[in-house]
């Protein structure tokens, strides 16, 4: 018969290993979070956008790809960065109050059930700025320092 109770030194060693593994897993992304906590991110639109304010439900409906037009009826084009881009994570967390994987699940559902479209993926914030400048009904997100004169904050009311 094997003993059913493990000696305490083995248990202690296992606890230490578990602790180290947990610590390693938690380490992921702490640097980004340190940066993120100091920055404020805003939904932004083209300077000539027909609309400069929106409700909290409205901003969520736009990024969920459910609301397809501005109040004046013109089409909305949504720009986002990659799911693992820290600006994207920051926007999901700070403004939309969801995890990026929740947004991705929603978009996948729309795309693969034929009931909607995914937002336009841009490769970096430079392309985000260029696309917003060239797209009248465009909406995306940027941190305060990157918001130039040609781009306006879409104010959440």
């Amino acid at each position: 018969m094997k003993p059913t109770v493990l000696p305490s030194n083995i248990l202690k060693n296992r606890a230490v290993v578990l602790f180290i593994v947990c610590g390693f897993l938690l380490e992921n992304g702490t640097e980004q979070e340190a940066f993120a906590s100091e920055q404020l991110i805003y939904p932004v639109v083209n300077q000539n956008s027909p609309q400069k304010t929106i409700s909290r439900n409205g901003i969520s409906a736009i990024f969920k790809m459910r609301l397809r037009h501005w109040q004046d009826g013109s089409a909305i084009t949504v720009f986002v960065l990659q799911d693992d881009d820290f600006l994207h994570k920051l926007f999901c967390k700070q403004v939309l109050n969801v995890f990026p994987h929740q947004m991705r699940r929603g978009w996948n559902k729309l795309v693969f059930s034929g009931t909607g479209q995914a937002p336009v993926l841009v490769k970096d914030k430079q392309e985000m700025i260029e696309r917003l400048n060239s797209t009248p009904g465009g909406v995306g997100y940027l941190v305060e320092d990157d918001i130039s004169d040609s781009i306006s904050i879409l104010e959440i009311q």
């Binding site: 409700s55 439900n57 409205g58 409906a61 459910r66 037009h69 009931t115």
Partner: peptide, 8 residues
């Protein structure tokens, strides 16, 4: 469709 509702 509005900011809070949609009927499709």
């Amino acid at each position: 469709s509005s900011e809070s509702s949609v009927l499709t």
